[in-house]
């Protein structure tokens, strides 16, 4: 039944089906062990979406860059730098400062990749190391304020109408990204540049500006995630972003976005994030040891990609 779907929708449908499978397996497990089905309760699902919102926002930014055929390895320390700087400044300026950090990192990344033509893999890695160095140098000698501001706490922990505010933030970011991708010239240019940059350039697209734009969006998304995460854990700390890089890439790819760029829908990334968050959660309910979790995690990614269908043999 999946074969009738278009190549872009097939992975999304399979991933969504797998999400249902995860929920069913988890429910069967809890029914067998304790006789309850907490996984299907709205409270549990909302809680999962709340913890998934940080990963979701990172993945949204990452997707813009992957659509170009590039990658942003600077997300961990962009996230941490934005969070640490924002909480050090504190007060009303925290949010603009966090976004400013994300914007600056995005501009630097974009400049290196678009103008200096250094492969994004290594340039963003270097930027990540520099950011880490800056943060260590900034916080090492003395301890700046690292408490979350009231706005961070509100956005990450409070609920409106019984739904965590973080989910609203994630939804807002999602709407903005999907509108950009489907309704604006910038979005179309991202797909075109990702498919073949030379052709896009000859068609009159200013590909350098597009690349910089995508990296700026990625940096700002990481900054927003850092802002929220500070509120969620009540403080900013070094290494707070380390757990988000690889899952973000995995979520984007599991959602059907091609790692070489040019193809993919935002809905897929959304499903990919939910898949990873639920998989982690169900495995921890099953009290799976870290070793087993990592193995299952890797096997699922490989297995899903094999099911999605294989690339064409030769790319020339």
């Amino acid at each position: 039944m999946f074969n009738r779907l278009s190549p872009e929708n097939k992975p999304i449908a399979i991933a969504a089906a797998f999400v249902v499978v995860i929920l069913l397996v988890g429910t069967v497990y809890t029914l067998a062990t304790s006789g309850t089905a907490p996984l299907l309760s709205p409270v549990y699902l909302l809680q999962q979406l709340q913890t998934g919102s940080f990963l979701g926002i990172c993945a949204a930014g990452m997707m813009m860059v992957i659509l170009l055929g590039h990658i942003d390895l600077s997300i961990p320390w962009t996230l941490a730098a934005a969070a640490m700087t924002a909480s050090a400044i504190g007060g009303d300026m925290a949010l603009p400062v966090a976004l400013g950090v994300g914007l600056t990192v995005g501009l630097v990344n974009g400049f290196g990749v678009a103008f200096l033509r250094i492969p994004s893999m290594i340039f963003t890695l270097g930027v990540d190391t520099v950011l880490r160095g800056l943060m260590v140098a900034q916080t090492g000698g003395f301890a700046p304020q690292d408490r979350a501001t009231p706005l961070m706490l509100f956005l990450a922990k409070d609920k409106v109408l019984g739904i965590p505010v973080a989910i609203f933030v994630w939804a807002a970011v999602s709407i903005v990204i999907s509108v950009i991708l489907t309704r604006t010239g910038f979005g179309k240019s991202v797909y075109a540049t990702g498919s073949r940059e030379g052709a896009a350039y000859l068609s009159g697209i200013r590909t350098r500006a597009i690349i910089i734009g995508a990296f700026v969006i990625s940096g700002m998304c990481a900054a927003i995630a850092g802002f929220l995460l500070t509120g969620y854990s009540a403080k900013a700390y070094q290494g707070m972003g380390n757990a988000f890089l690889l899952p973000a890439i995995a979520a984007v790819v599991l959602g059907g976005t091609h790692i070489l760029g040019g193809r993919g829908r935002y809905v897929g990334t959304l499903v990919g994030v939910i898949l990873i968050v639920l998989l982690n959660s169900v495995l921890s309910i099953m009290q799976m040891a870290e070793a087993g979790r990592q193995i299952i995690y890797g096997t699922v990614i490989i297995g899903m990609l094999l099911v999605y269908g294989r690339n064409t043999r030769i790319i020339s």
Partner: peptide, 20 residues
């Protein structure tokens, strides 16, 4: 499997860490 190396090894890396 015709999976891109970067994403295939991202996954097998998780498996290797799990085994370790």
């Amino acid at each position: 499997g015709r999976i891109q190396p970067i994403i295939a090894t991202l996954a097998t890396g998780a498996i290797a860490i799990g085994l370790a």
